[in-house]
Amino acid sequence: MDLKDLYQDVVVDHNRSPRNFRKITDATSVQEGFNPLCGDKLTVYLKLDGDRISDVSFEGSGCAISVASASLMTETLKGKSVAQAEQLFEMMHTLLTVEDPKRDMESMGKLAVLSGVREYPSRVKCATLCWHTLNNALKNPDSRPVSTE
């Protein structure tokens, strides 16, 4: 296993300059995610316009994997429907936990760069924290922190 598979250039870049790293003041849902094991803490802001994600952003601190994953997630989700977001959540989950050579990587777009995390079981939670937080935001708009421990 090469470290480069985990820390791909895209990951290092998104960690250094995370996209959509800001508050959304008129968000329709705000959720906090916390991983007590490593102290990663994220807030995901979601703005729904009917069934469309018109804006999504995050703030917080964490390791390179969790920050890059959150950054890539917000980039990917903007403009998507709720159903598409839920589908991506599922796809991301299996990407990070199930080896599948026949997987359609094309449909995952940039998110595919995180597939290397699968080889590092102790780090999978870092990459999924933002997605669990988002899922929480989609499912129940009243704030309750989610934990991935």
């Binding site: 470290l3 250094r16 490593c38 990663d40 390791c63 390179a64 994997i65």
Partner: peptide, 23 residues
């Protein structure tokens, strides 16, 4: 500076060095 302890832990582990990261 600029590197989260978890990333340090994973990278040094790849070099055979076992340290702990966390709280």
């Amino acid at each position: 500076d600029g590197v989260h302890p978890h990333d340090i832990g994973t990278i040094v582990d790849q070099q055979g060095v076992a340290i702990r990261t966390g709280h």
